[in-house]
Amino acid sequence: MARLHIALLALLPIFFILTVLSEVESAAVKDGKEKDSEHQGPSKKVFVPASDASNFFKRRGRRSPKLYAEYVAEHKMQVAASERRREYYDEQSNEYENHLEESRNEQRERNRENAEQWREYHYDGIYPHYPHHRPYY
């Protein structure tokens, strides 16, 4: 029972705030059901009809030519994007080449060590260790 009283007391201020704020005029655009005679003053300058609002950012038509500044801005963006792309791929290829070089060096070192161990194990003392001292057959 005490929980019910606490919940009702917590919800009572929220209900009061919502009822008071519903009567206050807000900054939201009206849906056009009220008359325009109610809105006079600075709000008349801020809010525009829906047809003008939808075309506000579309000042240039689809078929009209772009301004030179727009071409320049688009070109700069394309150049910057291609530069970033080129730097990224250069960095990736450099990292891959470094990785390949390291792995090849490690493989060569392992092969050299294996060959050296094989030579030491199989050396019978007849021929020298080095291939340029071996006779040709």
Results as ranks from 00 to 15, higher is better:
A2E: 10
A2I: 08
A2F: 05
R3C: 10
L4P: 00
H5Q: 03
H5L: 06
I6H: 00
L8A: 07
L8R: 05
L8H: 04
L9Y: 01
L11F: 09
L11W: 05
L11Y: 03
P13W: 02
I14E: 03
I14T: 04
I14C: 03
I14D: 01
F15H: 03
T19E: 06
V20P: 00
V20L: 12
L21R: 05
L21M: 07
S22C: 07
E23F: 13
E23K: 08
E23M: 11
V24N: 02
V24F: 08
E25Q: 09
E25V: 13
A27G: 06
A28T: 06
K30T: 07
K33E: 06
E34V: 13
K35W: 10
D36A: 12
D36V: 08
H39L: 14
H39S: 11
Q40T: 15
Q40H: 15
G41N: 04
S43Y: 12
S43K: 12
K44H: 09
K44F: 10
K45P: 01
K45H: 10
V46W: 10
F47N: 01
V48I: 13
V48S: 08
P49I: 05
P49K: 03
S51N: 12
D52A: 12
D52Y: 07
D52R: 04
A53C: 05
A53V: 01
S54E: 07
S54Y: 02
S54H: 03
N55C: 08
F56P: 06
F57A: 11
K58P: 00
R59Y: 04
R59E: 12
R60P: 00
G61M: 07
R62P: 06
R63D: 13
P65L: 01
K66L: 13
Y68W: 02
E70N: 02
Y71Q: 02
Y71A: 02
V72M: 00
V72R: 00
E74C: 01
H75V: 01
H75D: 12
K76W: 08
M77R: 02
V79P: 00
A80K: 01
S82V: 12
S82N: 12
E83Y: 08
R84I: 15
R84W: 07
R86I: 14
Y88I: 11
Y88E: 15
D90N: 03
D90C: 00
D90Q: 02
Q92C: 09
Y96K: 04
Y96H: 04
L100D: 11
L100N: 11
L100I: 15
E101L: 12
R104E: 06
E106F: 03
E106G: 08
E109C: 10
R110A: 11
N111W: 01
R112I: 11
E113W: 13
A115V: 03
A115G: 00
A115T: 03
E116M: 13
Q117F: 09
W118H: 15
R119V: 15
E120I: 14
E120C: 05
E120V: 13
Y121T: 14
Y121M: 08
H122K: 13
Y123Q: 12
Y123R: 07
I126E: 09
I126F: 07
Y127M: 12
P128R: 12
H129L: 13
H129S: 11
H129A: 13
Y130L: 13
P131H: 09
H132L: 11
H132I: 12
H132E: 15
R134W: 15
Y137N: 11
